[in-house]
Amino acid sequence: MALTLDQMRHDVADALGEDPQDIPLDESLIDYGLDSVRIMALLERWRRVHGVRTDFVTLAERPALEAWAPLLGVTS
């Protein structure tokens, strides 16, 4: 099953206890409370469920959904 931007947004919102519509696509998720532990948990879930291939450092350098999408193979 391919990972989508919508699924990413829902997963991040779930990790933060927020509504998905409150999660921006183009802003730093750190400003919304996403920390390194949550990034690691999201990455592990996406690896397991969606087979993504990237590493924590790459995601942590640019913590925004729009920046992550191409790194995770998301095209839409």
Rank of each mutant, 00 (worst) to 15 (best):
H10W: 13
A60Q: 13
V37C: 05
V37A: 06
G51L: 07
A69M: 00
E66N: 15
Q7T: 08
H50E: 02
P63N: 06
I30Y: 15
E61I: 06
G33I: 01
P70Y: 10
R45L: 10
A15S: 13
G51P: 00
I23H: 03
G73P: 01
L43T: 02
G33P: 07
R53W: 06
I39R: 02
S28N: 15
D6V: 12
T75K: 07
L65S: 01
W68E: 04
R38Y: 08
A2H: 05
L29G: 05
E27V: 05
T4Y: 01
Q7P: 02
E66T: 12
R45A: 06
G17M: 11
R62D: 11
L25R: 07
R53F: 04
A15W: 02
R45Q: 15
E18P: 03
T4C: 03
W46T: 08
E27G: 03
L59M: 14
V74H: 09
D11G: 08
V52Y: 09
Q7D: 09
D14Y: 13
L42C: 07
L42T: 07
P63R: 12
D55Q: 09
L65M: 06
L72G: 00
R62W: 10
L42K: 10
E61K: 14
I39D: 06
L29V: 08
S36C: 12
W68S: 03
M1W: 03
Q21S: 15
D26H: 12
A64Y: 03
S28D: 04
T4D: 00
A60F: 14
I39A: 15
E66S: 13
L72N: 04
L34R: 12
I23Y: 06
G17S: 04
F56I: 13
E18M: 13
R62Q: 13
V12W: 03
L3N: 01
A41S: 09
T58W: 08
R9K: 12
L16S: 08
S28P: 04
R9D: 05
G33M: 14
A64P: 03
S28K: 09
M1N: 01
G73S: 09
G51Q: 02
D11V: 05
D35S: 11
D19K: 11
R9A: 07
R53L: 14
M1V: 01
I23T: 11
